[in-house]
Design a protein around this nucleic acid. Structure first.
Lengths: 131, 131
DNA sequence: CTCCGACTTGATGGATGCATCACACCATGG
DNA sequence: CCATGGTGTGATGCATCCATCAAGTCGGAG
């Protein structure tokens, strides 16, 4: 990513671009693994994800391009780590949000399912609320 | 989003899906505006973003579907707000990460540009580091 | 009731991302 | 030097997302 152009674009565009880099399950998985270890070899990531080497490499390339990870070659092996500890923080906050979402929507769904008139109650709680 | 299927999918998939919902500049912009106000009318969002109504509506639909915002109709107007305060927190942490990235990459670029031998120095700092 | 402003939904062409296979590059041992 | 293990890059068909226009729905005033 060109640091000059990032510095000159609106922050919401730069943020959206960051989220694009994060918007694939396997890339999130890789970052989670890297959050749990200081440094991980590509071989270990291959074992963890079950991906073919070139497939993982493509995803790692995206992560590198977004400055989310750094790569270090040691002999014939390459090791990856998070480029910044803030990446782990971001994943952690995302998790907290999802837990919250899940608690809320799941409890609503459960109450709808288990109570015979719950559908009516749920509707009358906030009749103006469009979901 | 189906709460049951989210509860049953791996967390990294659910996270990635969340990031997909965030992966467009205008959706980030909307969330930022909503982070700054308790409740914002669609008309205000239209004015802020400069979008055509149907275009904004499509993006708002994505945000609703991802449980990031809630909508409330009052007479002929609709008002939006963040579904959870954690959404603002996530944007804030993303910002902190980007600031960090920008500081780091920008200072590297500046040192490369301003010092005649800086390119050599930057290279020898960590010769094993692949960027 | 009709009309109109506000907003949403549907359809679609073009842009971008993903998965896969072939090939390239690097490091090391024989 | 060649062979091999480890990893990265390029090309491409298919899937998904984005932007845009047309049409639909809701609420309220006359």
């Amino acid at each position: 990513m060109d640091p000059y152009s990032d510095a000159q674009r609106p922050l919401y565009e730069v943020k959206a671009n960051l989220f694009k880099g994060l918007a694939h399950p396997l890339r999130v998985r890789v970052l989670e693994v890297l959050s749990a270890s200081p440094s991980v070899s590509v071989a270990d990531l291959l074992a963890d994800t079950g991906l073919e080497a070139s497939h993982l490499s493509q995803h790692l390339s995206v992560l590198r391009r977004h400055n989310l990870v750094t790569a270090e070659r040691r002999a014939s092996q390459v090791f990856y780590r998070l480029a910044y500890p803030e990446v782990a923080e971001l994943l952690s906050v995302a998790r907290a949000l999802l837990v919250r979402v899940l608690e809320t929507t799941h409890s609503q769904l459960v109450s709808t399912v288990t109570l015979p008139f719950a559908a009516d109650l749920a509707t009358s709680e906030d009749p103006e609320m469009i979901r």
